[in-house]
Design a protein around this nucleic acid. Structure first.
Lengths: 226, 226
DNA sequence: AATATACTATGATAATTGTCATATTTAATG
DNA sequence: CATTAAATATGACAATTATCATAGTATATT
Protein backbone atom coordinates (compact mmCIF):
# COMPACT_ATOMS: atom_id res chain seq x y z
CA UNK A 1 0.00 0.00 0.00
CA UNK A 2 1.21 3.52 -0.75
CA UNK A 3 1.92 5.79 2.12
CA UNK A 4 -0.68 8.50 1.84
CA UNK A 5 1.71 10.81 3.62
CA UNK A 6 3.35 11.85 0.35
CA UNK A 7 0.12 12.16 -1.58
CA UNK A 8 -0.91 15.46 -3.12
CA UNK A 9 -4.39 15.10 -1.67
CA UNK A 10 -2.91 14.88 1.79
CA UNK A 11 -1.07 18.12 1.09
CA UNK A 12 -3.94 20.09 -0.39
CA UNK A 13 -7.21 18.89 1.07
CA UNK A 14 -8.79 18.85 4.52
CA UNK A 15 -6.69 15.74 5.12
CA UNK A 16 -3.66 17.92 5.79
CA UNK A 17 -4.92 18.15 9.36
CA UNK A 18 -4.40 14.43 9.97
CA UNK A 19 -1.58 13.35 12.26
CA UNK A 20 0.86 10.50 11.66
CA UNK A 21 -1.31 7.78 13.18
CA UNK A 22 -4.38 8.98 11.35
CA UNK A 23 -2.52 8.91 8.05
CA UNK A 24 -1.51 5.31 8.68
CA UNK A 25 -5.11 4.47 9.45
CA UNK A 26 -6.09 6.23 6.23
CA UNK A 27 -3.54 4.31 4.20
CA UNK A 28 -4.86 1.05 5.57
CA UNK A 29 -8.46 1.71 4.67
CA UNK A 30 -8.16 3.31 1.27
CA UNK A 31 -8.62 1.64 -2.11
CA UNK A 32 -7.04 3.01 -5.27
CA UNK A 33 -8.76 3.11 -8.66
CA UNK A 34 -7.91 4.20 -12.13
CA UNK A 35 -10.65 5.86 -14.15
CA UNK A 36 -10.41 6.43 -17.87
CA UNK A 37 -11.50 9.62 -19.56
CA UNK A 38 -15.26 9.55 -19.98
CA UNK A 39 -15.89 6.95 -17.30
CA UNK A 40 -17.84 7.69 -14.12
CA UNK A 41 -16.55 7.63 -10.56
CA UNK A 42 -20.13 7.66 -9.35
CA UNK A 43 -23.48 8.47 -10.88
CA UNK A 44 -26.29 10.71 -9.74
CA UNK A 45 -28.48 8.80 -7.29
CA UNK A 46 -25.77 6.34 -6.27
CA UNK A 47 -24.98 5.82 -2.60
CA UNK A 48 -21.26 6.35 -2.26
CA UNK A 49 -20.55 5.61 1.41
CA UNK A 50 -17.29 7.46 1.45
CA UNK A 51 -15.23 10.11 -0.25
CA UNK A 52 -12.85 10.01 -3.19
CA UNK A 53 -9.41 11.59 -3.16
CA UNK A 54 -8.27 12.77 -6.56
CA UNK A 55 -4.63 11.80 -6.91
CA UNK A 56 -4.40 12.66 -10.56
CA UNK A 57 -6.49 13.83 -13.48
CA UNK A 58 -9.49 16.09 -13.90
CA UNK A 59 -13.14 15.33 -13.25
CA UNK A 60 -16.48 16.99 -13.70
CA UNK A 61 -19.52 17.05 -11.44
CA UNK A 62 -22.62 17.25 -13.57
CA UNK A 63 -26.33 16.63 -13.76
CA UNK A 64 -28.24 15.34 -16.73
CA UNK A 65 -31.32 17.34 -17.69
CA UNK A 66 -34.58 16.10 -19.15
CA UNK A 67 -33.55 17.26 -22.63
CA UNK A 68 -30.37 15.21 -22.46
CA UNK A 69 -27.96 18.04 -21.77
CA UNK A 70 -25.27 17.63 -19.17
CA UNK A 71 -24.99 20.68 -16.95
CA UNK A 72 -21.54 20.84 -15.36
CA UNK A 73 -21.58 22.15 -11.83
CA UNK A 74 -17.89 22.01 -11.03
CA UNK A 75 -14.56 20.78 -12.33
CA UNK A 76 -12.33 19.02 -9.83
CA UNK A 77 -8.63 18.30 -10.00
CA UNK A 78 -5.86 16.51 -8.19
CA UNK A 79 -5.65 17.37 -4.54
CA UNK A 80 -9.40 17.68 -4.09
CA UNK A 81 -11.91 15.51 -2.29
CA UNK A 82 -15.11 14.36 -3.92
CA UNK A 83 -18.41 13.18 -2.53
CA UNK A 84 -18.10 14.93 0.82
CA UNK A 85 -21.52 16.49 0.57
CA UNK A 86 -23.58 13.39 0.00
CA UNK A 87 -21.59 11.53 2.64
CA UNK A 88 -22.23 14.21 5.25
CA UNK A 89 -25.88 14.57 4.28
CA UNK A 90 -26.42 10.81 4.26
CA UNK A 91 -27.91 11.11 0.82
CA UNK A 92 -27.35 9.53 -2.56
CA UNK A 93 -25.15 11.62 -4.83
CA UNK A 94 -26.93 14.63 -6.26
CA UNK A 95 -24.50 14.82 -9.16
CA UNK A 96 -22.50 12.44 -11.32
CA UNK A 97 -18.71 12.53 -11.22
CA UNK A 98 -16.96 11.65 -14.45
CA UNK A 99 -13.38 11.82 -15.67
CA UNK A 100 -12.55 14.58 -18.13
CA UNK A 101 -8.97 13.35 -18.26
CA UNK A 102 -7.69 9.96 -17.06
CA UNK A 103 -7.86 9.89 -13.30
CA UNK A 104 -6.39 8.11 -10.35
CA UNK A 105 -8.53 8.25 -7.24
CA UNK A 106 -8.57 6.70 -3.78
CA UNK A 107 -11.75 5.73 -2.02
CA UNK A 108 -11.94 6.35 1.72
CA UNK A 109 -14.82 4.67 3.56
CA UNK A 110 -17.31 6.85 5.39
CA UNK A 111 -16.44 5.39 8.79
CA UNK A 112 -12.86 6.63 8.52
CA UNK A 113 -13.86 10.14 7.59
CA UNK A 114 -16.47 10.35 10.33
CA UNK A 115 -13.93 9.12 12.83
CA UNK A 116 -11.53 11.87 11.82
CA UNK A 117 -14.37 14.38 11.84
CA UNK A 118 -15.28 13.53 15.42
CA UNK A 119 -11.77 13.28 16.80
CA UNK A 120 -9.79 15.92 14.99
CA UNK A 121 -11.13 19.45 15.30
CA UNK A 122 -8.78 20.84 12.72
CA UNK A 123 -9.91 18.24 10.21
CA UNK A 124 -13.60 18.92 10.80
CA UNK A 125 -12.96 22.64 10.50
CA UNK A 126 -11.04 22.13 7.25
CA UNK A 127 -13.82 19.98 5.84
CA UNK A 128 -16.37 22.57 6.87
CA UNK A 129 -14.37 25.34 5.24
CA UNK A 130 -14.05 23.40 2.05
CA UNK A 131 -17.82 22.90 1.83
CA UNK A 132 -18.29 26.59 2.65
CA UNK A 133 -15.94 27.48 -0.17
CA UNK A 134 -17.98 25.32 -2.55
CA UNK A 135 -21.13 27.04 -1.35
CA UNK A 136 -19.74 30.48 -1.94
CA UNK A 137 -18.61 29.55 -5.42
CA UNK A 138 -21.93 27.99 -6.23
CA UNK A 139 -23.81 31.08 -5.08
CA UNK A 140 -21.57 33.35 -7.11
CA UNK A 141 -21.98 31.11 -10.15
CA UNK A 142 -25.71 31.30 -9.69
CA UNK A 143 -25.60 35.06 -9.68
CA UNK A 144 -23.35 35.13 -12.73
CA UNK A 145 -25.77 32.89 -14.61
CA UNK A 146 -28.50 35.45 -14.15
CA UNK A 147 -26.62 38.68 -14.36
CA UNK A 148 -24.18 37.96 -17.15
CA UNK A 149 -24.64 37.20 -20.82
CA UNK A 150 -23.42 33.98 -22.39
CA UNK A 151 -20.55 35.91 -23.93
CA UNK A 152 -19.46 37.23 -20.54
CA UNK A 153 -19.74 33.81 -18.97
CA UNK A 154 -17.65 32.24 -21.71
CA UNK A 155 -14.91 34.83 -21.19
CA UNK A 156 -15.09 34.30 -17.45
CA UNK A 157 -14.93 30.53 -17.79
CA UNK A 158 -11.94 30.60 -20.14
CA UNK A 159 -10.09 32.80 -17.66
CA UNK A 160 -11.03 30.50 -14.83
CA UNK A 161 -9.81 27.44 -16.71
CA UNK A 162 -6.55 29.24 -17.34
CA UNK A 163 -6.13 30.17 -13.68
CA UNK A 164 -7.17 26.84 -12.26
CA UNK A 165 -5.50 24.43 -14.68
CA UNK A 166 -2.80 26.40 -16.46
CA UNK A 167 -1.48 26.07 -19.99
CA UNK A 168 0.53 23.62 -22.07
CA UNK A 169 3.92 24.51 -23.56
CA UNK A 170 2.14 25.67 -26.73
CA UNK A 171 0.13 28.06 -24.52
CA UNK A 172 -3.13 26.22 -25.07
CA UNK A 173 -5.37 25.51 -22.08
CA UNK A 174 -4.33 22.40 -20.22
CA UNK A 175 -7.84 21.11 -19.51
CA UNK A 176 -9.04 19.68 -22.75
CA UNK A 177 -12.80 20.07 -22.80
CA UNK A 178 -15.09 19.41 -25.73
CA UNK A 179 -17.19 22.34 -26.89
CA UNK A 180 -20.15 20.51 -25.48
CA UNK A 181 -18.56 20.32 -22.03
CA UNK A 182 -17.57 23.96 -22.19
CA UNK A 183 -21.17 24.80 -23.08
CA UNK A 184 -22.26 22.67 -20.12
CA UNK A 185 -20.15 24.79 -17.79
CA UNK A 186 -21.34 28.17 -18.97
CA UNK A 187 -24.88 26.93 -19.33
CA UNK A 188 -25.68 27.40 -22.97
CA UNK A 189 -26.26 25.44 -26.18
CA UNK A 190 -23.22 23.82 -27.75
CA UNK A 191 -23.77 25.73 -30.98
CA UNK A 192 -23.89 29.05 -29.15
CA UNK A 193 -20.65 28.19 -27.42
CA UNK A 194 -18.94 27.27 -30.70
CA UNK A 195 -20.24 30.43 -32.36
CA UNK A 196 -18.91 32.65 -29.58
CA UNK A 197 -15.54 30.90 -29.64
CA UNK A 198 -15.43 31.70 -33.36
CA UNK A 199 -16.23 35.33 -32.60
CA UNK A 200 -13.54 35.49 -29.91
CA UNK A 201 -11.14 33.96 -32.42
CA UNK A 202 -11.94 36.59 -35.04
CA UNK A 203 -11.53 39.32 -32.44
CA UNK A 204 -8.15 37.77 -31.56
CA UNK A 205 -9.13 37.35 -27.93
CA UNK A 206 -8.32 33.68 -28.30
CA UNK A 207 -6.82 31.43 -30.93
CA UNK A 208 -8.33 28.10 -31.89
CA UNK A 209 -5.59 25.54 -32.40
CA UNK A 210 -7.56 22.56 -33.62
CA UNK A 211 -9.77 21.74 -30.71
CA UNK A 212 -7.47 23.45 -28.29
CA UNK A 213 -7.84 27.00 -27.12
CA UNK A 214 -5.10 29.56 -26.60
CA UNK A 215 -5.88 32.76 -24.66
CA UNK A 216 -4.36 35.64 -26.60
CA UNK A 217 -5.68 38.73 -24.88
CA UNK A 218 -6.34 38.10 -21.24
CA UNK A 219 -6.85 41.75 -20.39
CA UNK A 220 -9.58 42.10 -22.99
CA UNK A 221 -11.21 38.86 -21.86
CA UNK A 222 -11.25 40.16 -18.30
CA UNK A 223 -12.82 43.40 -19.36
CA UNK A 224 -15.41 41.57 -21.43
CA UNK A 225 -16.33 39.30 -18.54
CA UNK A 226 -17.24 42.21 -16.23
CA UNK B 1 -32.32 37.59 29.38
CA UNK B 2 -34.58 35.09 27.62
CA UNK B 3 -33.89 31.45 28.07
CA UNK B 4 -32.87 30.29 24.63
CA UNK B 5 -34.10 26.85 25.60
CA UNK B 6 -37.64 27.64 24.46
CA UNK B 7 -36.58 29.42 21.29
CA UNK B 8 -37.69 28.14 17.91
CA UNK B 9 -34.13 28.44 16.60
CA UNK B 10 -32.95 26.12 19.33
CA UNK B 11 -35.58 23.61 18.19
CA UNK B 12 -34.95 23.80 14.46
CA UNK B 13 -31.33 24.69 13.81
CA UNK B 14 -27.97 23.04 14.49
CA UNK B 15 -28.30 24.46 18.00
CA UNK B 16 -30.64 21.63 18.92
CA UNK B 17 -27.53 19.61 19.69
CA UNK B 18 -26.53 21.90 22.56
CA UNK B 19 -26.83 20.57 26.10
CA UNK B 20 -28.26 22.46 29.07
CA UNK B 21 -25.01 24.12 30.07
CA UNK B 22 -24.25 25.13 26.55
CA UNK B 23 -27.68 26.71 26.18
CA UNK B 24 -27.09 28.76 29.31
CA UNK B 25 -23.77 29.86 27.89
CA UNK B 26 -25.54 30.74 24.66
CA UNK B 27 -28.20 32.75 26.47
CA UNK B 28 -25.52 34.74 28.28
CA UNK B 29 -23.63 35.71 25.16
CA UNK B 30 -26.45 36.51 22.74
CA UNK B 31 -27.83 39.93 21.86
CA UNK B 32 -31.35 40.39 20.53
CA UNK B 33 -32.28 42.82 17.77
CA UNK B 34 -35.41 43.87 15.97
CA UNK B 35 -35.13 44.56 12.27
CA UNK B 36 -37.84 46.33 10.31
CA UNK B 37 -38.94 45.24 6.88
CA UNK B 38 -36.48 46.52 4.30
CA UNK B 39 -33.64 47.03 6.77
CA UNK B 40 -30.38 45.08 6.60
CA UNK B 41 -29.02 42.63 9.15
CA UNK B 42 -25.68 42.81 7.43
CA UNK B 43 -24.44 44.00 4.08
CA UNK B 44 -22.24 42.37 1.49
CA UNK B 45 -18.60 42.89 2.43
CA UNK B 46 -19.29 43.42 6.12
CA UNK B 47 -17.37 41.40 8.69
CA UNK B 48 -19.99 39.82 10.90
CA UNK B 49 -17.96 37.96 13.55
CA UNK B 50 -20.79 35.69 14.51
CA UNK B 51 -24.06 34.19 13.41
CA UNK B 52 -27.64 35.42 13.58
CA UNK B 53 -30.52 33.30 14.81
CA UNK B 54 -33.82 34.18 13.21
CA UNK B 55 -36.43 34.17 15.95
CA UNK B 56 -39.15 35.65 13.85
CA UNK B 57 -39.82 37.09 10.40
CA UNK B 58 -38.47 36.45 6.93
CA UNK B 59 -35.22 37.56 5.39
CA UNK B 60 -33.51 37.48 2.03
CA UNK B 61 -29.89 36.86 1.14
CA UNK B 62 -29.05 38.81 -1.96
CA UNK B 63 -26.34 40.36 -4.06
CA UNK B 64 -26.52 43.63 -5.91
CA UNK B 65 -25.40 43.51 -9.53
CA UNK B 66 -23.66 46.20 -11.55
CA UNK B 67 -26.93 47.14 -13.26
CA UNK B 68 -28.61 47.76 -9.92
CA UNK B 69 -30.64 44.56 -9.75
CA UNK B 70 -30.81 42.60 -6.56
CA UNK B 71 -30.40 38.89 -7.16
CA UNK B 72 -31.93 36.91 -4.30
CA UNK B 73 -29.97 33.79 -3.44
CA UNK B 74 -32.11 32.45 -0.62
CA UNK B 75 -35.03 33.29 1.62
CA UNK B 76 -34.59 32.53 5.30
CA UNK B 77 -37.18 32.20 8.02
CA UNK B 78 -37.58 31.72 11.73
CA UNK B 79 -35.63 28.79 13.07
CA UNK B 80 -32.70 29.27 10.71
CA UNK B 81 -29.17 30.49 11.27
CA UNK B 82 -27.58 33.17 9.16
CA UNK B 83 -24.00 34.08 8.45
CA UNK B 84 -22.53 30.64 9.17
CA UNK B 85 -20.61 30.53 5.93
CA UNK B 86 -18.69 33.77 6.24
CA UNK B 87 -17.97 33.02 9.88
CA UNK B 88 -16.51 29.60 9.11
CA UNK B 89 -14.58 30.88 6.10
CA UNK B 90 -13.23 33.85 8.03
CA UNK B 91 -14.43 36.10 5.27
CA UNK B 92 -16.58 39.20 4.96
CA UNK B 93 -20.17 38.42 4.00
CA UNK B 94 -20.57 37.48 0.36
CA UNK B 95 -24.24 38.46 0.41
CA UNK B 96 -26.45 41.03 2.07
CA UNK B 97 -29.16 39.92 4.49
CA UNK B 98 -32.28 42.08 4.59
CA UNK B 99 -35.68 41.74 6.19
CA UNK B 100 -38.57 40.92 3.88
CA UNK B 101 -40.94 40.98 6.84
CA UNK B 102 -40.22 42.47 10.29
CA UNK B 103 -37.66 40.30 12.01
CA UNK B 104 -36.39 39.46 15.43
CA UNK B 105 -32.87 38.05 15.46
CA UNK B 106 -30.25 37.13 18.03
CA UNK B 107 -26.57 37.63 17.43
CA UNK B 108 -24.21 34.95 18.73
CA UNK B 109 -20.50 35.83 18.79
CA UNK B 110 -18.10 33.74 16.76
CA UNK B 111 -16.19 32.55 19.82
CA UNK B 112 -19.28 30.83 21.22
CA UNK B 113 -20.06 29.03 17.99
CA UNK B 114 -16.47 27.91 17.54
CA UNK B 115 -16.42 26.65 21.09
CA UNK B 116 -19.52 24.55 20.46
CA UNK B 117 -18.08 23.40 17.14
CA UNK B 118 -14.93 22.11 18.81
CA UNK B 119 -16.55 20.53 21.83
CA UNK B 120 -19.83 19.13 20.62
CA UNK B 121 -19.58 16.65 17.77
CA UNK B 122 -23.29 16.56 17.19
CA UNK B 123 -23.38 20.33 16.84
CA UNK B 124 -20.50 20.43 14.38
CA UNK B 125 -22.13 17.64 12.39
CA UNK B 126 -25.45 19.51 12.35
CA UNK B 127 -23.76 22.71 11.23
CA UNK B 128 -21.93 20.80 8.55
CA UNK B 129 -25.13 19.19 7.34
CA UNK B 130 -26.90 22.50 7.19
CA UNK B 131 -24.17 24.00 5.00
CA UNK B 132 -24.27 20.85 2.86
CA UNK B 133 -28.01 21.28 2.46
CA UNK B 134 -27.48 24.88 1.33
CA UNK B 135 -24.87 23.68 -1.13
CA UNK B 136 -27.16 21.08 -2.60
CA UNK B 137 -29.96 23.60 -2.99
CA UNK B 138 -27.66 26.12 -4.55
CA UNK B 139 -26.37 23.58 -7.06
CA UNK B 140 -29.88 22.53 -7.96
CA UNK B 141 -30.94 26.16 -8.33
CA UNK B 142 -28.00 26.71 -10.61
CA UNK B 143 -29.06 23.84 -12.80
CA UNK B 144 -32.67 25.03 -12.86
CA UNK B 145 -31.51 28.49 -13.93
CA UNK B 146 -29.91 27.00 -17.01
CA UNK B 147 -32.26 24.20 -17.85
CA UNK B 148 -35.63 25.79 -17.20
CA UNK B 149 -37.43 28.71 -18.78
CA UNK B 150 -38.48 31.76 -16.79
CA UNK B 151 -42.05 30.47 -16.86
CA UNK B 152 -41.01 27.15 -15.34
CA UNK B 153 -38.89 28.84 -12.72
CA UNK B 154 -41.77 31.12 -11.74
CA UNK B 155 -44.10 28.14 -11.32
CA UNK B 156 -41.43 26.32 -9.32
CA UNK B 157 -40.78 29.33 -7.10
CA UNK B 158 -44.47 29.90 -6.37
CA UNK B 159 -44.78 26.26 -5.31
CA UNK B 160 -41.69 26.54 -3.18
CA UNK B 161 -42.98 29.66 -1.45
CA UNK B 162 -46.22 27.83 -0.77
CA UNK B 163 -44.43 24.81 0.68
CA UNK B 164 -41.89 26.73 2.72
CA UNK B 165 -44.02 29.57 4.08
CA UNK B 166 -47.64 28.44 3.75
CA UNK B 167 -50.77 30.48 3.13
CA UNK B 168 -52.92 33.07 4.89
CA UNK B 169 -56.55 32.40 5.81
CA UNK B 170 -57.59 33.89 2.47
CA UNK B 171 -55.33 31.30 0.79
CA UNK B 172 -52.86 33.87 -0.44
CA UNK B 173 -49.14 33.19 -0.02
CA UNK B 174 -47.87 34.12 3.42
CA UNK B 175 -44.54 35.58 2.29
CA UNK B 176 -45.39 38.94 0.86
CA UNK B 177 -42.81 39.68 -1.81
CA UNK B 178 -42.86 42.53 -4.26
CA UNK B 179 -42.85 41.56 -7.93
CA UNK B 180 -39.31 42.89 -8.03
CA UNK B 181 -38.22 40.53 -5.27
CA UNK B 182 -39.96 37.62 -6.92
CA UNK B 183 -38.15 38.48 -10.13
CA UNK B 184 -34.93 38.59 -8.12
CA UNK B 185 -35.49 35.04 -6.96
CA UNK B 186 -36.27 33.52 -10.32
CA UNK B 187 -33.61 35.61 -12.01
CA UNK B 188 -35.50 37.66 -14.53
CA UNK B 189 -36.62 41.21 -15.24
CA UNK B 190 -39.41 42.58 -13.06
CA UNK B 191 -41.59 43.22 -16.12
CA UNK B 192 -41.18 39.65 -17.33
CA UNK B 193 -42.20 38.39 -13.92
CA UNK B 194 -45.29 40.61 -13.84
CA UNK B 195 -46.22 39.58 -17.35
CA UNK B 196 -46.01 35.89 -16.53
CA UNK B 197 -48.03 36.36 -13.35
CA UNK B 198 -50.67 37.97 -15.53
CA UNK B 199 -50.56 35.00 -17.88
CA UNK B 200 -50.83 32.54 -14.98
CA UNK B 201 -53.76 34.57 -13.71
CA UNK B 202 -55.55 34.40 -17.06
CA UNK B 203 -54.90 30.64 -17.22
CA UNK B 204 -56.39 30.39 -13.70
CA UNK B 205 -53.22 28.79 -12.36
CA UNK B 206 -53.09 31.56 -9.78
CA UNK B 207 -55.29 34.45 -8.72
CA UNK B 208 -53.92 37.91 -8.14
CA UNK B 209 -55.58 39.43 -5.08
CA UNK B 210 -54.18 42.93 -5.13
CA UNK B 211 -50.48 42.38 -4.68
CA UNK B 212 -51.05 39.03 -3.08
CA UNK B 213 -50.94 35.74 -4.91
CA UNK B 214 -53.27 32.79 -4.45
CA UNK B 215 -52.31 29.43 -5.94
CA UNK B 216 -55.40 28.02 -7.63
CA UNK B 217 -54.15 24.99 -9.54
CA UNK B 218 -51.18 23.46 -7.85
CA UNK B 219 -51.23 20.35 -9.97
CA UNK B 220 -51.00 22.35 -13.17
CA UNK B 221 -48.26 24.54 -11.72
CA UNK B 222 -46.28 21.43 -10.83
CA UNK B 223 -46.68 20.05 -14.29
CA UNK B 224 -45.66 23.36 -15.81
CA UNK B 225 -42.53 23.54 -13.66
CA UNK B 226 -41.19 20.20 -14.90
C1' DA C 1 -58.21 64.67 1.39
C1' DA C 2 -54.52 65.76 -1.75
C1' DT C 3 -50.19 65.06 -3.55
C1' DA C 4 -46.25 62.43 -4.11
C1' DT C 5 -44.10 58.13 -4.46
C1' DA C 6 -43.64 53.44 -5.14
C1' DC C 7 -45.48 49.42 -7.21
C1' DT C 8 -48.02 46.92 -10.77
C1' DA C 9 -49.42 46.40 -15.47
C1' DT C 10 -49.12 46.20 -20.48
C1' DG C 11 -47.62 47.39 -25.26
C1' DA C 12 -43.97 47.82 -28.68
C1' DT C 13 -39.61 46.64 -29.95
C1' DA C 14 -34.89 44.94 -29.86
C1' DA C 15 -31.41 41.80 -28.37
C1' DT C 16 -30.03 37.41 -27.02
C1' DT C 17 -30.03 32.79 -27.33
C1' DG C 18 -31.87 28.25 -28.83
C1' DT C 19 -33.13 25.05 -32.48
C1' DC C 20 -32.79 22.80 -36.74
C1' DA C 21 -30.35 21.93 -40.94
C1' DT C 22 -26.21 20.99 -43.07
C1' DA C 23 -21.27 21.22 -44.10
C1' DT C 24 -16.71 20.28 -42.80
C1' DT C 25 -13.18 18.51 -40.16
C1' DT C 26 -11.20 15.22 -37.01
C1' DA C 27 -10.86 10.89 -34.71
C1' DA C 28 -11.89 5.98 -34.36
C1' DT C 29 -12.54 1.34 -35.99
C1' DG C 30 -12.38 -2.64 -38.63
C1' DC D 1 -6.58 2.91 -45.65
C1' DA D 2 -11.36 3.20 -46.12
C1' DT D 3 -15.49 3.81 -43.82
C1' DT D 4 -18.04 5.28 -40.05
C1' DA D 5 -18.80 7.97 -36.29
C1' DA D 6 -18.06 11.99 -33.59
C1' DA D 7 -16.90 16.74 -32.99
C1' DT D 8 -16.67 21.34 -34.83
C1' DA D 9 -18.50 24.94 -37.62
C1' DT D 10 -21.88 28.03 -39.77
C1' DG D 11 -26.35 29.67 -41.72
C1' DA D 12 -31.26 30.56 -41.25
C1' DC D 13 -34.85 31.11 -38.41
C1' DA D 14 -37.79 31.02 -34.23
C1' DA D 15 -38.54 31.61 -29.45
C1' DT D 16 -37.56 33.67 -25.31
C1' DT D 17 -36.54 37.40 -22.66
C1' DA D 18 -34.94 42.22 -21.79
C1' DT D 19 -35.59 47.03 -22.40
C1' DC D 20 -37.98 51.24 -22.91
C1' DA D 21 -42.14 53.75 -22.71
C1' DT D 22 -46.26 54.78 -20.57
C1' DA D 23 -50.34 54.22 -17.87
C1' DG D 24 -52.90 52.72 -14.04
C1' DT D 25 -53.19 51.58 -9.07
C1' DA D 26 -52.06 51.37 -4.36
C1' DT D 27 -49.69 53.29 -0.44
C1' DA D 28 -47.57 56.72 2.24
C1' DT D 29 -47.06 61.37 3.86
C1' DT D 30 -48.18 65.79 4.87
Amino acid sequence: MNKCDQCIVRQLSSLKALNKDEVIQLANSKTTYKIKKGEAIFEEGEVTNGVFCIKDGVGKLSKLSANGKDQIVKLVQSGELLGQRSMISNEPANLSAKAVADMEVCFIPKAEILHFFNNNNQFSMNLMQSVCEDLKESENDKIALVQKTVKQRLAETLLHLYDAFGENTDQTLKVQLTREELAGIIGTATESCIRLLSDFNKLELIELVGKKIKLKNIKALKKLSE
